[in-house]
């Protein structure tokens, strides 16, 4: 089930194999979060209404693409913190370029992310610089550029038709067109991941890069491609957000990084590389969004939100830690041996 290579023969099983989240844990966690919020709400009706659902999916639309890109790079055991930069710069560029032609604006915005990914990936591969330093540089440069381009203020996006269409809700008011576009990328990513060489090569290079290289995988090209796609996706996330808000503010957008990272980790992408799937990241993002929207609906302030997100992330990291798992296995074994003897 966990590898993209399970070969189920019947269509339903194949569908499940592609789109089911990789492990039950993330899903249980989602249910746990919902139950937790419902308990806090205590039947007050502030939580379980269409408004909250819509705000969750709107938040998902904001974080989703960055988290997907971030998770994909993380599967290769690298970190691309510049995705937040692509996100904000992409949005600013799109707003500046796409006034009359939104598609051109979106393409220009995405081009920023793609170019950033290509350049940084090239530096990583050719000069063998660690990703964290390169992408931190990229983040600062792009954030700075976004600030300069927007003149340090909020610039508004004049094309109200685009904004209206993106924010228009579907499915009985549960999700906007913007959310659906982001969701579509997840579906596409999950499909590519399961049914093509991409997923397999990602896993292989993530868990044993030198080995995958020896086996004939072009790991350098894969890394550059991952950074490029992630950059493009993040920029698109920024474009959609700015179009949807009808405004871009260079300095205000960089805070997607922490929630997106948290989402990827909670969704089962291992820091050690080689593990994780798009649908897992989706669940991770939903958990983060639920927590934030849910708690906001219940009247929690924004600072407390960060603290709670952090606590959840820590909890998952502890659960995931190899130390704990080893110890659990050890306890189990000891217990088994004791029971077996008595």
């Amino acid at each position: 089930m966990n590898t993209p290579a399970g070969r189920p023969s019947n269509p339903l099983a194949r569908l499940l194999d592609t789109y089911a989240p990789p492990n039950g844990r993330a899903l249980w966690f989602l249910i746990l979060v919902i139950a937790f919020l419902a308990a806090l709400d205590a039947g007050g009706g502030r939580l379980l209404n269409l408004g909250t659902v819509f705000s969750v999916t709107q938040l998902f639309a904001t974080y989703g693409l960055v988290a997907l890109g971030f998770g994909m790079v993380m599967m290769l055991r690298e970190f691309d913190v510049s995705l937040a930069g692509s996100f904000s710069l992409g949005g600013v560029v799109a707003v500046l370029v796409g006034g009359s032609n939104p598609v051109l604006g979106a393409l220009a915005g995405m081009a920023v992310g793609v170019a950033a990914g290509l350049i940084q990936g090239g530096l990583l591969v050719w000069l063998r610089i660690p990703a964290i330093s390169v992408t931190l540089g990229g983040l600062l440069i792009m954030s700075g550029l976004a600030f300069v381009l927007s003149g340090g203020t909020t610039i508004s996006y004049p094309n109200r038709d685009v904004t209206r269409w993106l924010q228009e809700s579907e499915l009985g008011g549960m999700i906007s067109h913007r959310g659906l576009i982001v969701l579509a990328f997840y579906v596409l990513a999950a499909w590519l991941y399961t049914h093509t060489r991409i997923g397999r090569d990602l896993i292989a290079s993530g868990s044993n890069r030198a080995g995958a290289g020896n086996a004939g995988v072009n790991t350098s090209a894969l890394l550059v491609a991952a950074l490029t796609v992630a950059g493009g996706l993040s920029a698109l996330g920024g474009v959609l957000l700015c179009y949807g808000l009808a405004a871009a503010a260079g300095q205000a957008l960089a805070d997607v990084l922490a929630p997106a990272t948290a989402a990827a980790i909670i969704g089962g992408v291992s820091l050690g590389g080689g593990k994780g799937r798009p649908m897992g990241i989706l669940i991770g993002v939903l958990i983060i969004c639920l927590l934030r929207s849910g708690l906001t609906a219940l009247g929690t302030g924004p600072k407390a939100l960060d603290a709670i997100t952090g606590a959840v992330l820590l909890f998952v990291a502890v659960l995931d830690g190899s130390q704990l798992q080893d110890r659990l296995i050890g306890w189990k074994r000891t217990l088994g041996a004791r029971l077996g003897r008595s």
Partner: peptide, 18 residues
Amino acid sequence: ELSLAPDLDVEDNIWLGS
């Protein structure tokens, strides 16, 4: 230093990079 990917199954490993 083996060049197999531990998180993939045997078949994918056999054809990995081919």
